[in-house]
Write a protein that binds this DNA or RNA. Sequence first.
RNA 1: GCUCCGGUAGCUCAAUGGAUAGAGCAACCGCCUUCUAAGCGGUCGGUUACAGGUUCGAGUCCUGUCCGGAGCGCCA
Length: 743
Amino acid sequence: MPSIQAQLNQQFTHAFTAAFGSDLPLPDDPLVVPASNPKFGDYQCNAALPLAKPLKRKPRDIAQTLLDNLQIEQWCEEPEIAGPGFINLRLKTEVLARQLTDRLQDERLGVERVKQPQKVIVDFSSPNIAKEMHVGHLRSTIIGDSIARILEFQGHEVLRLNHVGDWGTQFGMLIAYLREAYPEALTTADALDLGDLVALYKKAKQRFDEDAKFKETAREEVVRLQAGADDSRRAWQLLCDQSRREFQTIYDRLDIQLTERGESFYNPLLPGVLETLEAARIVAEDGGAKCVFLDGFTNKEGNPLPLIVQKSDGGYNYATTDLAALQYRIGKDEGDRIVYVTDSGQSNHFTQVFQVARKAGILPDEVQVVHVPFGLVQGEDGKKLKTRSGETIKLKDLLDEAVDRFYQNLEKRLEEESRTETEEFKQEVATKVGLSAVKYADLSQNRTSNYIFSYDKMLAPQGNTSPYLLYAYARIRSIARKGQSQGTVTPTLAVPETSATEIKPLASQPILLGGVLLQKLGDFGRYVLDASRSVEQLEPVVQQINALRQLEWGAIGKTTAILVISLLFSDAVLRVHAVLHTLPFMPSLMCLVGVFASSRFAWQFLLFASGRQQLTANFEQAKLTVLGDPDATPQLAPSKPAAALPAVSAPELQLTEPEELALAKHILQLDEVLQEVEQDLMPNRLCQYLFELSQKFNKFFEECPVLKSEEPVRSSRLALCELTARTLRLGLGLLGIPVLERM
RNA sequence: GCUCCGGUAGCUCAAUGGAUAGAGCAACCGCCUUCUAAGCGGUCGGUUACAGGUUCGAGUCCUGUCCGGAGCGCCA
């Protein structure tokens, strides 16, 4: 269903044409925007002001003419003309209530899937092989992941690429150094640990900078490597494997999904890029190097600046690799929108590469390339973040410290409140809060400016921080628990929660289809899968699905997976059946059960087959909901597809208190915010929204008792709580942050 | 020298060309017999770096100046 704003906008467009004819161009698009200030209502239309001049009429008269042609009474109270000619709109309370009720039934919380999904490539994280991930990789990884999650949720097909630095001069240097200092490391896996490797890298770099002869050896080593010499290649492979394992532990910890496709991948394509450039007749030779001269960039003498695409020694550099990557991502990956999440220092580089790519015909007009720049991470002194001894901070240490600090913080608080909690609880809370605090602190700032890293601020329980948001969520869950223990439960909260043991194994991509299928087949299916304990056995299936997805045989992959899982299902049913037959008195009973079960299964399957289109549509959503928060146990329950929700009558919402109205209106803005973020790729907007949602919930919590209220207010407020919780969980999930039931 | 990014409350940051520029932190004053006070209410805080321009309307767009950061031929 279109958003309220879209519907109002449509009405205004009609009214505009009716009032002024279709010749007059619309002064604004859209005509209706959210009100700039709550006191002006919910939406406003400013169209009358710019029309004053062309129509030679007073803006207020124009606004009145517009209103005379407008039919919006089904949504709004009587519109008001304010100030010089603003039209202020206030939604009817019953419209709010209706919208909220709709959202209770909608697992996407009113956020529509984009009508024209794009293939979006998000290039992010991209650490260097043979170095540990450090604080410099933090922002790209966190921001890139969130952008990818948001675009996926909007319904785009997203390819998350890790453009790791696994090629080039540095490898020649490193291999050359290892060859003379630690030859065994070149032939034996894990002969050195990565910490040593990092130290060696520094020594190698030092020698490279100081010793001309070593520099030459390193260059030769690069040539050997690029030519595919066996021993060099093997050494390279060992280095890469070792680094990759280290990266993966960080990615697992932060719940980041990436497809690695490093610089080396494009190596064979580089000569082809040069040919393309030469065919476009834009390559010039200068001092032995092949260059493309750039528009709008000059050197110190004022002459055009070249982009070097082949060095005088015949080697290629990163500009050529980026061009090759662009060519591949457009030609082979068929990307419609290509997003690069790197620090803002590289903005010139990307401008240059994009310019050359356009000139060479690599980059057509219809493909959108976007550099998503971000600022430096600085210490509290405003300088580049370093350890006390001046070393670059390792990402692992940084994450550990955030978790440790929150653990201390938590213990102190528990002591103050005389609470006792298990070690497991404390560890889980500290880990989730610590890691999410690091993520949220980064995401909540405008990414273009530098960001001052402060454990104290990010872990603070007040302000725009993850602990504040997680606390708001935990408060809601606390109400829900208490409500349930009192035995009176609203229909919306009565959705049965799947148990932790069922969810944990489901919370990974492979089992996704299984999860959806289970939802579709209902309790019967869940029982069978549970009894057969075949979740682990599905692991290979999942891998299969993953592989298929990476090959982008999405449709085939899904269909195959559905078939495979259906077969496993049948198998499971048969096995359970067989086991039951071995028990006394059971065979005759089982005949009946068998007839019932198989007819039910067949019926469900037919239903399922007819609804497969819908299933496919639900796939991405389910993936996001599941993957967005693999550890949050109640995740699957609300992600139940709308069709599968029990047919309950939603409570009649009573929105009377100002806190209730403010909260309700805010909940309904989620779709608008996400649309903005989709366009601008600024996750801080989503953070702002979630922070305000938490604030509005806390105000509601203070002023509006939930469980102590009489019906129907009680149910109404419980529904508001439920919607707030779901919105928080979804929003945080899109930031890569899992929620906590209790903290 | 050129290019790019930024300059908003004491601090950290928001603010699609819209109305009286908002939050949080810090400081101060209140609120726990009540669903988690990790909360809520209040007070204080501004010539949006500066000067022009465009516009019915500018923190936002354009030009210039000042200040800060980043980048600028064979590293990535």
